[in-house]
Amino acid sequence: MAEIPGWLTEGQARMLWDAVQRLPAGATVVEIGSHQGRSTIVLGHAARTVGATVVAIDAFVDGRLFGGASTRDLFEANIAAAGLEDVVELVVGYSTRLRPHWTRPFELLYVDGKHDYWTYVDDLRWSTHLPEGGEILVHDCFSSIGVTAGTLDKVLLGSRYRYLDRSRSLARFTVRRPDLTDRLRVAAQLPWFVGNVFLKVLLRLRLRTVAGWFGHHGPYDPF
């Protein structure tokens, strides 16, 4: 994983690995947003140990931030180099366009797609195919404004998802009706989110030295 560009930390990779390890043989993992395959390789190796498979969904959009066809080439090369071609199935397309026509059940959902509110909320609707108690892992939660807004709307104020825990910006939810304690645990993450937004503003203003005073070092956003 360390050889592939991306923002997934070692602790977050462990969280993905452990989630797959809880699955039964024959299970399916759906990943929304694969990029060059940093997280896909973690999911794929974990899936192999339990006899599961991974469906990786990515539109490979053209543009400086996404890479388009060249990123797809890198993804496929990385999956091949990891020896996971028999475990990982690539589905190319926008998750929001694929979802209404999707019929295959799966047991674990990992969401790391487009981070605006509307796309993220739509990606959560893939959980329709999860069993009761199935897990959803969301990257950039309590870090991205769009993803956090969607989480407050659908988890804190909703009735379908229960917050479990997180590794920095990777949060874990389950398909289960929340109680008051669960909602309070979501609200308890908001100070950390506000701190992340504050750091991002400092970085946009090129105030890296000031960000360093608050414990953030380097040019990249906190993940």
Rank of each mutant, 00 (worst) to 15 (best):
V210K: 01
S143N: 12
D86Q: 13
Y110T: 09
G212C: 05
F198Q: 00
A19C: 11
Y220P: 05
D112F: 03
Y110I: 10
Q21E: 14
G11P: 11
S143F: 07
F142L: 05
G37I: 06
D18W: 02
G113F: 03
L74E: 01
V55L: 07
L180G: 05
L8Y: 02
G37V: 09
S95C: 08
N78I: 02
V201P: 00
A2G: 09
H115W: 03
L98Q: 07
L124Q: 08
S70C: 00
R204A: 08
V175P: 04
W7Q: 10
T128Q: 12
A19S: 14
T174I: 15
A19L: 08
V197Q: 03
G113Y: 06
D86P: 09
M1G: 13
S159P: 07
D73Q: 08
H217D: 04
F173S: 04
V55K: 07
R172V: 13
T151D: 03
H101P: 01
W126C: 10
R204Q: 11
A25G: 15
S70M: 05
V88E: 05
V175Y: 05
V210P: 08
L156N: 10
V30Q: 07
D182T: 14
G195C: 01
L74S: 10
R185A: 12
V88M: 05
N196Y: 00
D62P: 14
L43K: 08
A80C: 01
E107P: 12
V42P: 03
R177H: 15
N78A: 04
T209D: 11
V121N: 00
I32D: 10
P24N: 15
C141Y: 07
T28V: 14
C141L: 11
C141I: 02
T9C: 03
P24D: 15
R99H: 04
F223E: 13
V20N: 04
L157T: 07
Y163I: 12
T174H: 00
L8G: 05
C141W: 06
G113H: 10
R183S: 04
P100N: 06
A171M: 03
V201S: 00
L205R: 10
A25K: 14
A46V: 11
G218V: 08
A27K: 12
S70G: 01
G63I: 13
T119S: 08
E107T: 13
L84I: 11
L207E: 08
I41W: 02
L8F: 06
P131M: 06
T209F: 06
V186P: 09
T28P: 01
F223Q: 13
Y220Q: 13
P24S: 15
T9A: 09
T96D: 14
D86E: 15
P191F: 00
L130P: 03
K200T: 00
V210R: 06
T53A: 11
G212M: 07
D122R: 09
H139S: 10
